[in-house]
Design a protein around this nucleic acid. Structure first.
Lengths: 342, 342
DNA sequence: ATGAAAGCGCTAACAA
DNA sequence: TTGTTAGCGCTTTCAT
């Protein structure tokens, strides 16, 4: 194993001081072209690259963003992570991943680990955190952004889609389609996304004097969702809902499988199904799922923006709650309103 | 922002030396219970946690594993990453993610970035690398494991499924099902997985004196794959293959969409389709795809094992090429051989 | 524009 | 078992 090439080595070879080398590799530092050339020559001959960790120690900036994520089975997350990681890379940051179970205690211990790495910022996707740990991050001066989840109590920056508005859109669409008995399959009830989607959905139904015909909980989990779907649809014809809004696409697909292949019903003839997220499989023709699109690109942009503001300007940055509107993507899994124009 | 709590501060408060504090937080170091208690008390009062980066500087171990990954749209990768990340976490490592485009130049520059972080090891998923960069890692003493890809020329540790054997199994199954005209849709031809799967497939066909009836390239990409499927199946009935092996599930699903919804053919009555990977959507009933399972758990275990061996025992560790056998998962997308017993 | 010196927070020898 | 000393590789005053 070759010796480590340090800035001191480069300095000696270039006949300059160590500080000179440092300055050459620090954008915006004052170095003469002559020195810079000498240093660069020596550096590339030696194959020198600055040690990010050493730099982090003294500068206090690690250029690492901690990412907490709970379950990647829901395709929305891998897609978002890919975009997030690329966007951060563009700004010279990299993502350190922490997988977490969804319990608060677990999140908190994971957060401790993250802080140990002196990250410059933290993105929490798909989970909530205790307010205690939130203030700990605050005390450590590490900005936190909640991605696709928000918290009412605490004042934490969050980026979500406008779940309430999304829920309303689904209700309005289903109502316009003259559905009579409308059901809802909920996600994990601790999730703000779940609550907001349901609240918006219910509120729009109420305004049309329509009560929810059935409700089950799928908990964002496949098996749980199948059970929920059976409870809702494996009933006498006259009691069966003719439409269902499922809290996310991942669950909606499981619901469709039960409806069509276990119960032999037709979609959308017997039952209309609408999901939420617009993950890639929603567009696969065997599902062709009508859904609300979460605009991952915009959500990522806002996340990166908020992070950078807080990192580069800790004083002036303010906590924000961004909710991005998402369009209804009409496909074939739900009966169309009369006279609907695609 | 509160002052940073350092080991020195804890030492003072506990009335011991800084080294004592260090030892308390180093598993297996020799400290008396009395000292340990004092230190722990002081530490928790102050909210002290060791700075991983500082520790990394002096110990030379960052406990960071760099992960290079190209595209998460293929569900196999998110699933694998989740498992990998969890497994490494269990051993006190964390994963720093680098998204890369698939070009070699890009990989190389990404590898430079990774090395800058003084990672203890590198996992490269879904991409290949130049031998030049491989030896650079070697020189830096950083072990590299290729995940789900292998390289013939260079001597790099790799973990894959046994793609050749998998390809053979598919051929044997299709042959046993009395298929006459068998086609193949290839992935990106630079990928070892693609090549091995095809080679195994073809070799078993040959042994049965069966020539490939059609071949197209899908490049692991959805749109490309649709085009390939149309070329292969949008032909007169008597020229149409009655079975197709698609190099991975992600492409197989796109192929099924084209066959059923664009061309109005029946699966498996008109065409049998077999994929590779056994990603979660393969089990969704609307696809119900017969496929070869990649045993992600075993692949991850082997990856972690190899990594740890090389990190903890750089002298004795040897480069290995692990190929894990994967079973054929028989579902409904391919016609069964006569007398087949599930 | 450049160099000398100090030190980020920690662990690893060494001595006691 | 414990404390002292040195130093990981870098950036950052502070002089010059």
């Amino acid at each position: 194993m070759a010796d480590k090439v340090t800035s001191l080595l480069v300095a000696e070879r270039a006949g300059v001081s160590q500080s000179a080398v440092s300055r050459v590799f620090t954008p915006g530092a004052s170095v003469s072209k002559k020195t810079a050339d000498k240093v660069r020559a020596a550096a590339s001959e030696l194959g020198y690259r600055p040690n990010v960790l050493a730099r982090a120690m003294v500068s206090g900036k690690s250029r690492i963003i901690g990412l907490v994520v709970a379950y990647l089975e829901n395709q929305f997350y891998p897609v978002a992570i890919e975009k997030l990681s690329k966007a951060l890379q563009k700004h010279g940051y990299h993502v350190l991943v922490f997988m977490a179970a969804e319990t608060i205690e677990n999140i908190d211990s994971v957060m401790d680990e993250i802080l140990d790495y002196q990250v410059d910022g933290i993105v929490i996707a798909s989970v909530a955190m205790s307010s205690e740990i939130a203030s700990r991050c605050d005390a450590a001066g590490v900005p936190v952004v909640l991605f696709n989840r928000s918290q009412d109590i605490d004042d934490i920056t969050s980026v979500t889609s406008d779940n309430y508005a999304g829920g309303r859109k689904v209700a309005e669409f289903l109502l316009a389609g003259r559905h009579q008995k409308i059901g809802y399959i909920a996600g994990w009830e601790g999730a703000s996304t779940q609550r907001d989607r349901e609240a918006g959905f219910i509120s729009a139904l109420k305004e049309a004097d329509c009560a929810l015909a059935a409700r089950q909980v799928g908990d964002f989990q496949t098996e749980q969702t199948r059970i929920a779907a059976r409870k809702m649809f494996d009933v006498p014809d006259d009691q069966r809902p003719d439409a269902v809004f499922v809290a996310n696409d991942h669950m909606a697909i499981a619901v469709m499988d039960v409806i069509r292949f276990e119960l032999g019903l037709k979609i959308p003839d017997d039952v209309s199904v609408v999901g939420y997220d617009d993950v890639p499989p929603a567009a696969w023709l065997a599902y062709n799922l009508t859904t609300i699109r979460q605009r991952a690109n915009l959500m990522v942009d806002e996340t990166v923006k908020a992070l950078r503001e807080h990192i580069e300007n800790p004083q002036e940055a303010i906590t924000r709650r961004v909710a991005i509107d998402g369009p209804l993507i009409v496909r074939g899994s739900a009966r169309l309103p009369k006279g609907w124009i695609g």
